[in-house]
């Protein structure tokens, strides 16, 4: 019984992990069909914000929940204004440019902070479940993954900003004709997507530690989740995370983390062969 609970929590944690990693990327992709190849480095930036400000004496929760999204969000707006803005409609170029940005950020952070692993201890202790003990932080991850999804759904469904965003997503030209400045919508979307990514990076930092090249460890999982999910922000991210999270966690329990990743990719390839537009290209097409 205890073991079952542990396995369920582990799988939930794996799913939340993917949701956290992919949410910011999914927002940007769903809105603008741009894949931000520097996504991993945005996560890294969030991580560094948390670690550095914690070391400077800032409360870790404040650093995670306020500073990280703020810094990375602002950085995202800057990137959008300076780079992405010129590349709308040129998808391949935007991939190349953001990849250049990714390399630049890895190099830049290495120059500033050095190529060493920095870390803080994971807050909260452990929770006992029967004979087993798991980190309480797992529940923080699960909570925030759920919160992300609910918050995005709520904003998109019930607010005026969400309405404008959905209109722009469905038909940019018509939205523009109705007086919406779509370039601002895109800028805001990129900023919010980056902020969410920064928050995720901040949440992951205590678990993984930060190092300039940490992004590569996450981009695989985030990209696969987003493209398998397809264009819908919430339904796509959720369905893909659930499916792939279960597969990779199952594989990880059986063989180890490296093959978990490989299984993730293999599942995604087969899925994309069957559903080239991602899960939400065929199923749940009308969902958010």
């Amino acid at each position: 019984m205890d073991y079952t609970i542990i396995v369920v929590i582990e799988i939930l944690r794996a799913i939340s992990w993917l949701v956290l990693l992919a949410a910011g990327l999914g927002i940007i992709f769903g809105m603008m069909r741009v894949i931000n190849f520097a996504h991993g480095e945005f996560l890294m930036l969030g991580g560094y914000t948390v670690i550095m400000s914690t070391k400077a004496g800032v409360n870790i929760w404040f650093a995670m929940l306020v500073l990280a999204p703020l810094c990375v969000g602002l950085f995202g707006v800057l990137v959008e204004r300076l780079v992405i803005r010129f590349l709308y409609g040129r998808i391949l170029d935007s991939l190349l440019a953001t990849w250049g940005l990714s390399l630049l950020m890895i190099g830049g952070v290495t120059l500033i902070f050095g190529n060493t692993v920095e870390g803080v201890s994971t807050p909260l202790g452990a929770v006992d479940i029967g004979a087993y003990s798991i980190p309480a932080y797992n529940f923080v991850l699960i909570f925030f993954a759920a919160l992300f999804m609910v918050a995005i759904w709520g904003v998109m469904k019930f607010t005026r900003a969400g309405l404008i965003a959905r209109a722009t997503m469905q038909n940019p030209a018509m939205a523009e004709a109705l007086g919406i400045r779509t370039t601002w919508v895109y800028m805001a979307t990129f900023g919010i997507g980056s902020a969410v990514t920064g928050l995720a990076g901040g949440l992951l930092a205590p678990l993984t530690g930060v190092v300039p090249t940490m992004g590569v460890n996450f981009v695989g999982q985030s990209f696969i989740t987003v493209i398998t999910g397809g264009a819908s922000m919430i339904a796509g991210t959720l369905s893909a995370s659930t499916l792939l999270g279960s597969i990779s966690q199952g594989m990880t329990i059986l063989t180890g983390p490296v093959y978990g990743d490989a299984a993730l990719l293999l599942a995604a390839l087969v899925l994309l062969r069957l559903l080239p537009q991602g899960i939400t290209g065929r199923i749940f097409t009308r969902s958010l």
Partner: peptide, 15 residues
Amino acid sequence: NNFVILGAILMVLVL
């Protein structure tokens, strides 16, 4: 370092 150079070249080429 190498990453900075590569990244900068790539971005400049695209933009």
